[in-house]
């Protein structure tokens, strides 16, 4: 008898009688909360930063200014032609010299400041992790209240997608560790900073900068 069959037989023999899944999954408050300001405040509390912008032109201005010293900036947003366009299929090891990656994400989550990004948006799976800094772009209206809504959104994205994702991740803030005496240090292995841009086309840039 193979280990597989042995394990399955023992499990089947030892598992308790049927227990139903809970029908109702609780969810936090939704409509009454100002989702984008909740998202931004949580993101800032976990070491990230956010900009509400009118469009890609503003994003380009901000990032060119902030990363004027950078050697290599790779973009996954076709709307940002002034940056190097990421090439799918590039050896992920060659991305080690990327200072900043700018990538689109699907949506943000207000309760924890996370953004959901799937493989197709990453150019290479390694890029959002290996880059020294990371910027993500979402639409201001694409913020859900909590993780229950997040998975509902993921399900609808998946049913609309041609192929399901092979890899996807929630990213909440910069890479961090507190393993040395509980002192928080940003930039453990991945990006040392995370900036999330929230695009609101209704917005005028006047008065923001």
């Amino acid at each position: 008898m193979s280990s597989r069959d042995k394990i399955l037989a023992t499990v089947q023999n030892n598992q308790p009688g049927p227990r139903d899944l809970p029908h109702h999954i609780p969810s936090g408050p939704t409509a009454s909360v100002d989702l984008d300001s909740a998202f931004i405040s949580v993101l800032e509390s976990i070491g990230g930063s956010a900009f509400i912008v009118s469009g890609y032109a503003r994003i380009a201005t901000i990032l060119h200014e902030q990363f004027s010293d950078a050697h290599r900036i790779v973009s996954g947003c076709p709307q940002l032609p002034t940056f190097e366009a990421g090439r799918p299929g590039e050896d992920p090891h060659a991305l080690e010299n990327v200072d900043l990656a700018i990538l689109p994400a699907h949506f943000g989550v207000a309760e924890n400041g996370a953004c959901w990004i799937t493989e197709a948006q990453m150019i290479e799976r390694a890029l959002p992790f290996i880059s020294q800094h990371l910027a993500l772009v979402i639409r201001r209206k694409d913020i859900v209240a909590d993780m229950h809504e997040a998975y509902a959104r993921i399900a609808s994205l998946e049913s609309a997608a041609e192929t399901p994702y092979g890899f996807a991740t929630f990213i909440a803030g910069p890479s961090k560790t507190a393993d040395i005496e509980q002192s928080l240090v940003l930039g453990a292995h991945g990006p040392a900073s995370l900036t999330v841009f929230l695009i609101d086309e209704q917005l005028s840039d006047a008065g923001f900068f």
Partner: peptide, 24 residues
């Protein structure tokens, strides 16, 4: 949705870990 809300809040008091990676 249920488990990721509970895990890191219980562990370190963070709202979620920096990365929650889904490998398919």
């Amino acid at each position: 949705g249920v488990f990721l809300r509970l895990l890191t809040r219980s562990a370190t008091g963070q709202p979620i870990t920096t990365y929650s990676s889904h490998f398919r």
